[in-house]
Design a binder for these strands. Structure first.
Length: 815
RNA sequence: GCAGAUGUGGCGGAACUGGUAGACGCACAGGACUUAAAAUCCUGCGGGACUUAACCUCCCGUGCCGGUUCGAUUCCGGCCAUCUGCACCA
């Protein structure tokens, strides 16, 4: 049957009936766990990006399976989240209804793609049998002290009376109504990811991940070594710490600045400065994080009226507040050294604070301020003349003796805020008892079901808070009146452990079985977009480590190898988006050409790790390729069983040699996600086979036929339906996907000829053909007896001859 | 601002640890087949010079300028452009 969507359907039906992608943990072969980042069913359908991610990754899984691994290749849905809720607010369609419907559609599409998934091992994070365990996981972290509650600011739209996600804040305004967004403090749940900062950083070394991604994580964790220095109030009535990486510049301190949110501010502000300070705090609160951190904005701040004592020299300095100091980094307070820090310099200039230089650079004594380079200390009393790094040690030593300082390490990484004031998420399994306070929901009472009938339109309250039925409960401790936590969990919590659930997806007793997951983990290959380099990929790593420490796992890292697919852009070169109107739907192509033509085109036309602008022009070339293959198969059938020639001559040897070369390089290419070159190589093999037919009156049926079967097997992971059809045409009654990846026959690889380039001063002059089997002496002989080479050697002033065995012969001449 | 990535024909893209730059394909051009077109097949296809033409030969060419090397798309230094992250991190 000529290839079309009909062929897809025929085989999809058959595969389903025969359950050929059923995963059996007991099957022979070493386990291989490969997965793609699961998709988010917000849109109604899979888009081109999904296809580009999933189809080649599926080919990879199929290849591994042919290699003899027992491949586990699950797929699921990250089903909770904001878009479904927003969609519901807009249309009135309940998030659960739209989500479940989308999942059905997407599953169907994934089957139409030819995905080799076993849906018995699937997760949908919005289903109670999944989020029960997400809640369980929260409880484990809570018990271990890794989940805690504290006040944290949220983006608040006072007109919509709702909390906004960062992405809903556009230019500091609410995306719906344009109201200026405020920062409001709410008590929220956090996971203590910072406890794992050091290990998360160290273990990056163990991972086979793209280097840029490791770098992003390194920066995200943001380790910096420095010191905490204690400044006391001038009357000794208060004290606070500053964090600095440049304690060597401490003699240059001309003021200290604390974050406006700091509790200390109220305490120390003098009455005459109260109004100014309070106004400033109010102004700061209006700014969202993005604005506040913008480099464009001028530095601002106000004096609190209070003074602190520099512990190194007892100098009295002013205490200011300024919004460029962040409460949650370091200690929320900095010492201002205008001479050696750009931000401090601008700040000091603006408010006429003194600027005192304490570092000089040897040989560049007149260096313009500010500069932050290390140098030699000046104006620093007994430390004058020391280098920056010597001074750091000594100064810390002195401060430590006084009990006013110590070395410390600071991380940029912040604890993970997991509370969301949303409906469509997993309820946080916490109860607030009138008497007992915070009480975790007992594990036996899980799941805390998300009620269906809830008013989720924004009107100032968390949606769940409005459901009396949900909120009212009795305390598991004392039986008294209690209320439930109304917030739900960040969806990143759901996706921080799903890879653990897949192999044991139907377990009703546990989130996952330790023995099962220890056997399956770590995931051998994880494929997904690099936009998750910082958030998702750090959260999963954290969760794995936390669960390990709680005794639920015995491995340290979830994903051994990570691959990022590139981004397919719109035809205009911009990121595809509905608002730009440049989206491309895969469905029409699949209908028109069939899944395999489409997936082959995606693999051939783009570099997998790179992506690029969509261009449909090349699809026809793939249609052409398929029909050339079909034609070849017709020819093959004509020859089948007719022995014309059993001789193995040079042409047969060449063909066999090339066949083996293809087995090797196509295999390596797929293994490395270089699908474009894998397809290219397969095209070369087709050309070689066609040449063989053309150039021979009598073909060797056995060699020819074996090469063709090998060729089709090499294509099997890439074009699963098409090759299955051909396999049947060739007379096979079992699935090609149960075949083994062809073996390389070393004896067929031997021999053949090769061109050795002859260069003069690195420039190509000619090539000399040699036999691969020749010894180096023979090769050199052949080269040196070549007439043109003799000519080159005799007419030039030869300085040197360089021969790299089997590679190149270069004659160095002097002009 | 900081960090990272990328830059190769008209286009998508090849080139293993430095060793024949442009694999494979698209587009294009010419030819065969056809009444014709489509499809298919064959040939050519980085730029330039020389040449009546062909073959040869030579020069230039992997963003730009330098360096290391017998030899650089590959390594090093400096620039330019584009893209992507991160955002005053003390």
């Amino acid at each position: 049957m000529e290839y079309s969507k009909k062929v897809d359907q025929k085989w999809q039906k058959k595969w389903k009936e025969e359950e050929i992608y059923k995963y059996d943990p007991k099957k022979e072969g070493k386990k291989f766990y490969t997965m793609e980042m699961f998709s988010y069913p917000s849109g109604a359908k899979l888009h081109l990006g999904h296809w580009f991610n999933f189809a080649p990754a599926d080919s990879f899984a199929r290849f591994k399976s042919m290699q003899g691994y027992n491949v586990f290749h699950p797929m699921g849905f990250d089903a909770f989240g904001l878009p479904a809720e927003n969609y519901a607010i807009k249309t009135g369609i309940h998030p659960e209804d739209s989500t479940l419907k989308n999942i059905e559609t997407m599953k169907k599409q994934l089957d139409e793609m030819g995905g080799s998934y076993d849906w018995d091992y699937s997760v949908e994070t919005c289903m109670p049998n999944y989020y029960k365990w997400t809640q369980w996981l929260f409880l484990q972290l809570y018990k271990a002290g890794l989940a805690y509650k504290k006040e944290a600011p949220v983006n608040w739209c006072d007109s919509c009376k709702t909390v906004l996600a960062n992405e809903q804040v556009i230019d500091g305004k609410c995306e719906r109504c344009g109201t200026l967004v405020e920062r409001k403090k709410l008590a929220q749940w956090f996971f203590k990811i910072t406890d794992y900062a050091e290990e998360l950083l160290q273990d990056l070394d163990k991972l086979d991940w793209p280097e840029p991604t490791k770098k992003i994580q390194t920066n995200w964790i943001g380790k910096s070594e420095g010191a905490e220095v204690t400044f006391k109030g001038e009357k000794g009535d208060f004290e606070f710490n500053v964090f600095t990486t440049r304690v060597d510049t401490i003699y240059g301190v001309t003021c200290v600045v604390i974050a406006p949110e700091s509790e200390l501010v109220k305490k120390i502000t003098t009455p005459d400065r109260k109004e100014a300070v309070e106004n400033y705090i109010k102004e700061t609160a209006k700014l969202n994080e993005i604005d506040r951190l913008s480099t464009e904005r001028p530095k601002t701040g106000v004096f609190t009226g209070a003074y602190a004592i520099n512990p190194i020299n007892n100098e009295k300095v002013e205490i200011w507040i300024a919004d460029y100091v962040l409460e949650d980094y370091g200690t929320g307070a900095v010492m201002v050294v205008p001479a050696h820090d750009e931000r401090d310099f601008i700040f000091a200039k603006k408010y006429n604070l003194p600027i005192k230089s304490v570092i000089k650079i040897e040989g560049d004594e007149d260096r313009k301020l500010p500069f932050h380079d290390y140098g030699i200390l000046i104006n620093s009393e007994k430390y004058n003349g020391l280098t920056s790094s010597e001074a750091k040690e000594k100064i810390i030593e002195e401060l430590a003796k006084k009990g006013l300082g110590k070395k410390t390490i600071s991380y940029r990484l912040k604890d993970w805020l997991v509370s969301r004031q949303r409906y469509w998420g997993a309820p946080i399994p916490i109860i607030y008892c009138d008497k007992c306070g915070i009480v975790p929901v007992p594990e036996k009472d899980l799941p805390v079901l998300l009620p269906y009938d809830v008013e989720f339109k924004p009107d100032g309250e968390s949606p769940l808070k409005k459901s009396k039925e949900f909120m009212e409960c009795t305390c598991p401790n004392c039986g008294g009146h209690a209320l439930r936590e109304a917030d739900t969990l960040d969806t990143f919590v759901c996706s921080s452990w799903y890879e653990l659930r897949y192999p044991d997806a139907k377990n009703n007793e546990k989130a996952f079985d330790k023995e099962t997951i220890d056997k399956m983990a770590p995931i051998d290959c994880y494929v997904g977009g690099k936009e998750h380099a910082a958030m998702h990929l750090i959260y999963v790593r954290f969760m794995t480590k936390a669960l390990r420490d709680l005794g639920f796992l015995s491995f340290d890292e979830p994903f051994k190898r990570l691959i990022h697919q590139g981004l397919i852009l719109g035809p205009d070169g911009n990121k595809m988006s509905k608002s730009k109107g440049n989206t491309v739907s895969p469905d029409e192509y699949v209908d028109k050409y069939g899944s395999d033509v489409f997936r082959m085109y995606l693999m051939f036309g783009f570099e997998y790790k790179q992506g690029g602008p969509w261009d449909e022009k090349g699809i026809d070339s793939m249609v052409r390729y398929f029909s050339r293959i079909e034609k070849l198969i017709e020819t093959a059938l004509k020859y089948k069983g007719k022995e014309n020639n059993s001789e193995i001559g040079e042409k047969e040897e060449d063909l066999l040699r090339f066949k083996n070369l293809c087995i090797k390089s196509i295999g390596e290419d797929i293994d490395n996600f270089h699908f474009n070159t894998a397809v290219a190589k397969s095209m070369e093999l087709l050309n070689k086979i066609n040449d063989y037919i053309k150039e021979n009156d009598k073909i060797n049926e056995k060699v020819f036929y074996e090469t063709i079967e090998t060729y089709i097997k090499l294509l099997a992971p890439l074009a699963p339906h098409f090759t299955e059809e051909i396999w049947e045409t060739l007379g096979h009654t079992t699935s090609i996907h149960k075949e083994k990846w062809p073996e390389i026959k070393e004896n067929e690889m031997k021999g053949g000829t090769k061109d050795i380039p002859i260069q003069v001063n690195g420039k190509l002059k000619l090539c000399v053909t040699i036999n691969v089997n020749d010894s180096n002496d023979e090769i050199l002989n052949k080269i040196k007896s070549n007439e043109q080479v003799i000519d080159l050697l005799s007419k030039n002033n030869v300085v040197k001859e360089i021969y790299v065995p089997g590679k190149i012969f270069n004659i160095v001449v002097k002009k």
